[in-house]
Amino acid sequence: MKKEWMTLRVFLNDRISYLAAMLLMIVIFVVMMLLELNLYKGYVHPNTIIYYVLLALLCMIGWLVFDYVRQRDFYKELLAAVENMSELRDTLSLHTIVTSEQKLFFRLLQKMHTAYLNELGKYRRQQERHNHFVLQWVHHMKTPVSVIDLLTQEDKVDKRTVHPAELTGSIREENERLARGLEMMLYTARLDKFEIDLHIRRVALHEVARSAINSFKKMCIRHAIFPKIVGEAYGETDEKWMTFMLNQLLSNAIKYSKHKPGTKQLIVTLRKDKDKDSITVSDQGVGIAAHDLRRIYDPFFTGDNGRTEGESTGMGLYLTKQVCDKLGHELIVQSVVGEGTSVTIVCQSGGIHKLTS
Results as ranks from 00 to 15, higher is better:
M185Q: 15
K103Y: 08
I196F: 12
Y116F: 12
E173F: 15
V31N: 15
A80F: 00
L178A: 08
E101G: 13
I267T: 10
K260W: 09
M60K: 08
K111Y: 09
F244L: 13
W241F: 02
F244D: 03
M22I: 10
L104H: 05
M185C: 05
L120C: 06
A165L: 11
V203Y: 00
V268W: 07
D158E: 09
Y52F: 14
A20P: 05
A80K: 01
I288D: 05
V333W: 00
C59E: 06
Y318M: 02
V336E: 14
I345K: 12
L317C: 00
I16Y: 00
E36S: 10
F300S: 10
K228C: 09
I279W: 01
F66V: 10
R271M: 06
A189C: 03
T308I: 13
K142M: 13
L109S: 06
G350T: 12
N131G: 08
R129Y: 06
E173I: 15
R72N: 09
R107F: 02
F216C: 08
I279H: 06
E195A: 09
V138M: 15
I28V: 09
S93C: 06
Y297E: 10
F194G: 10
R160I: 15
K260F: 14
I213G: 07
K156Y: 12
I296Q: 02
G169T: 14
S17M: 14
Q334L: 07
M219T: 08
G235Q: 03
W5S: 07
D155L: 15
V343F: 01
I225F: 11
K156V: 04
F194A: 00
T96F: 05
T48G: 01
H140R: 09
V145R: 14
T308C: 11
Y123I: 12
G287M: 02
I345L: 07
L246R: 01
Y256T: 08
M33R: 11
